[in-house]
Amino acid sequence: MRLVQTGDQQAYTRLLDRHLDRVHGYIFRMTNNRADAEDIAQETFLRVWHRARTFKPGRVRFTTWLHRIAHNLCVDAFRKRRDTVETEIDAMADGAPAADELSAAEERRRAVHAGIASLPERQRSALVLCQLQGRSNREAAEIIGVSVHALESLIARARRTLKTRLQSHMNLEGV
């Protein structure tokens, strides 16, 4: 990152090789939309390049800083598109094929995506960062900007909500 801060383009390419997939994965799981995920991932890494000098190595880990940029851009996108997203979800529900036309796996995939998409953004972010991206609770808390205890509560609420919503779609007895 120090080389990127000096404008080293090769170092920036290496940084992309190392972090792009993971950050794109986080954004895709947050947005559940391929085009949005690519746009936000692109904006995230352009900000890293243009604002590399604002990164203070001793103060925060690079991956935390990077994910915080991505997280903030996701939140901005959600706020801008809140009405649109609700409309899209309604439209998807109206135009979706009947359940018996879908394979069980596809039906389950859709149910999980819809369940995650319906979570409040901080719960979704906490769940995705810790459960799916493998971030530690402490790092995820720094990214979202909450205490570790608050983050754990967000995860617990997200899991409970999802389990309730997915109960009818799959066999999770006793969960």
Binding site: D17, H24, G25, R34, W49, Q131
Partner: peptide
């Protein structure tokens, strides 16, 4: 946990790295 991990597969961002480099 397995359901979440296995279901939420991320599509490969084809050409994204090149677009970012060009724009940067």
């Amino acid at each position: 946990d397995a359901l979440l991990t296995e279901t939420l597969v991320v599509p490969e961002p084809i050409g994204l790295k090149q677009r970012i480099l060009a724009n940067a």
